[in-house]
Computed example of a mutant assay.
Amino acid sequence: MILYLHPDNPEIRKLTQISQSLKKGGVFIFPTDTVYALVADANSKEGTEKLYSLKNMPKNKPISLLCRDISEASQFIEHLPNQTYKMMKKFSPGPYTFILKANKNLPKPCVIHHKDRHIGIRFPDHIYLQELLKIHDGPLTSTSVLTNDEYLTDIDDLELLYGQKVEGVIDGGLLQVEMSTILDCTEETLKVVREGKGFSELGIENI
């Protein structure tokens, strides 16, 4: 089922309904600042397991935690290097995944898939997810929509393949395939895992 939200002022009523469905274990497909992604409530075991099943991912493959801001993310981080904090503050929200050491507060469903206690944190720069995170109680978790090694960017293709498998596909128009930049921040020295969208803006080199 394709769902439509106002591009500038997403309807709070609709977002509230989506939030409630996520709490009950539902999974939605949302546009992000990179590609379309499967999204679930990070605290929902049912939703997280469904997300893995839909993408046919092995249980040991980590997924990202979507947070509304640094304050919320800090609740799940064991150690936040000063360099990383400054970078987060300057470039968030944006197309970046920050890999950090998680603490004991990491949502239980995520612990199953993050044996090394590392977690990818994202602050998506897309109004639909930003507004949803403002009203949703807790973080979300997500993974990009990938079928047969191809990222789906057309809403009709998403509806055809996933319309009957998820609670809703949020129409974000035709997206370009641009992956997030992944930064390993688990040590004091930052390492670039993947150069993606927004990398040149950081002004750093791969180490």
Rank of each mutant, 00 (worst) to 15 (best):
L15D: 01
C110V: 13
V166H: 03
L129W: 00
I119W: 00
T16V: 09
R13A: 14
E187D: 15
R117H: 13
S74G: 07
L65F: 04
L54Y: 07
L174N: 09
N82Y: 10
K101P: 00
I70P: 04
S92C: 12
K86V: 08
L174P: 05
I207W: 08
V177A: 10
V27R: 01
F91C: 03
Q20Y: 09
Y151K: 09
E188S: 08
I204A: 02
D154H: 11
K108S: 12
Q164P: 11
I112P: 05
P31C: 07
I18M: 09
F76Q: 03
L146G: 03
N148Q: 11
P124G: 08
K101Q: 12
D116Q: 14
D33N: 12
E167C: 07
E131P: 08
P58R: 14
L3V: 01
D157G: 08
L183M: 11
K61G: 07
K108T: 11
I204F: 06
D116P: 01
E72A: 09
D125G: 08
V166I: 07
M1I: 12
G26S: 12
I29H: 03
K90T: 13
P107Q: 10
E167F: 06
S21N: 15
M1Q: 07
I121F: 05
R122T: 00
N105F: 14
V166K: 00
K134D: 07
N206Y: 07
Y52E: 02
F76N: 00
H114D: 09
G173H: 03
K89S: 13
P124D: 10
Q164M: 06
L160I: 04
K89M: 14
P93F: 02
T48K: 09
N43P: 03
K24H: 13
H118E: 14
N82S: 14
E201G: 05
R117I: 11
D33F: 06
T32M: 12
F98T: 00
M88V: 04
D184Y: 09
I112S: 15
P10R: 13
S180N: 02
E72P: 05
F91P: 04
Q17V: 02
A73E: 06
K115R: 14
F76V: 08
H118P: 02
L152F: 06
K89R: 11
A40H: 02
D125S: 14
G198C: 05
L132A: 06
C67P: 00
Y162F: 15
G196M: 06
L5W: 10
I155H: 01
P124S: 06
E187R: 15
L152K: 02
A40Y: 01
H113T: 11
E188K: 01
A37Y: 07
L133Q: 01
T84C: 06
T48Q: 05
P7T: 13
I70S: 10
L65I: 02
L22M: 14
S92W: 06
N82I: 08
G173P: 00
I207V: 05
C185T: 05
G173Y: 05
I70K: 10
P7R: 07
C67N: 03
L22E: 04
